[in-house]
């Protein structure tokens, strides 16, 4: 069943065409990635889904229902972390739960056991300004995940991480996604990351963005902690070729 369906959506901001007749869908429990050059309009798609922006034409449905402004409740991780500088890390992490009406105390007991896995142990009472870029990003990811929303929208969630913690976080997320059966839409620049995590991948063109390719990744799961299979390498190579063809340069 289709959880998210974006159908012939176009967006123009001012005189600039940003999205040009984009159609993509995510099935319930599916992991879908969007790859595309910088400035293509990937984050714009998320702004449509979270209600920050309205499309000029086309339709967006969520579980068959039109996306009404008030029935949201996605787990959304913005590209910039959007941590509240006046809240301590622990209080940033509980924000989504508080919005759902859970008491701050109860929300804290829910979040605290996860701090260690996100490398935030001992930083609960720090302010965001006291954290490194990578730590802030992990905090933003944790803030998203603890809400346990059925649909996760992640805008480059691992971009600011070093190679090691990136792999760890990806593995952690894959396990968690698999267990929770989240419907996930991930935006990334990283071809390897997209292939490692996704069931399906959409490739966008430069702005105005169109869908120029759609790829299935049939590699069995769990994928992390195993040697990368030849079929994954082949898909990576193919994707790179499409992207290079588009941009004429490396991303």
């Amino acid at each position: 069943m289709t959880a998210l369906d974006i159908h012939n959506v176009s967006v123009t901001l001012g005189d600039t065409a940003i999205l040009d007749d984009i159609s993509l869908h995510v099935a319930k429990g599916e992991f879908v990635s969007i790859l595309g050059p910088s400035g293509a309009g990937k984050s714009t798609i998320f702004r449509l889904l979270t209600g920050a922006l309205r499309q000029n034409s086309g339709t967006i449905t969520c579980n068959g229902q039109p996306l009404a402004a008030d029935q949201h409740g996605f787990g959304f991780m913005p590209q910039r972390d959007a941590l509240m500088p006046w809240r301590r890390i622990i209080d940033n992490l509980t924000l989504g739960l508080e919005v759902q009406g859970i008491s701050r105390k109860q929300a804290r007991t829910q979040v605290t056991p996860l701090l260690a896995a996100f490398g935030l142990d001992g930083f609960a009472r720090h302010y965001p300004a006291q954290l490194s870029g990578g730590m802030r990003q992990r905090a933003a990811l944790l803030r998203t995940i603890v809400q346990n929303r059925p649909v996760q929208l992640l805008d480059e969630p691992f971009g600011a991480l070093d190679a090691l913690s990136r792999t760890q976080m990806q593995a952690w997320f894959e396990r968690r996604w698999h267990a929770a059966r989240w419907t996930t839409l991930l935006v990334t620049h990283d071809v390897r990351e997209a292939v490692a995590l996704s069931d399906r991948i959409y490739v966008l063109s430069r702005r105005p963005a169109r869908v120029i390719a759609e790829m299935h990744v049939p590699t069995p799961r769990p994928r992390h902690g195993r040697p990368v299979r030849a079929e994954s390498h082949a898909i990576e190579a193919q994707l790179l070729e499409i992207l290079l063809d588009q941009t004429g340069e490396l991303l």
Partner: peptide, 29 residues
């Protein structure tokens, strides 16, 4: 108020009142 913080809260399903209390008011301090 940082519009990204407001967008984030809206994505969480926050009401206008919640956004005021948790984002706009502290931003104004």
């Amino acid at each position: 108020t940082d519009p990204e913080i407001e967008d984030l809260m809206r994505s969480m399903g926050a009401t206008r009142g919640q956004i005021f209390r948790s984002a706009r008011f502290p931003s104004a301090m």
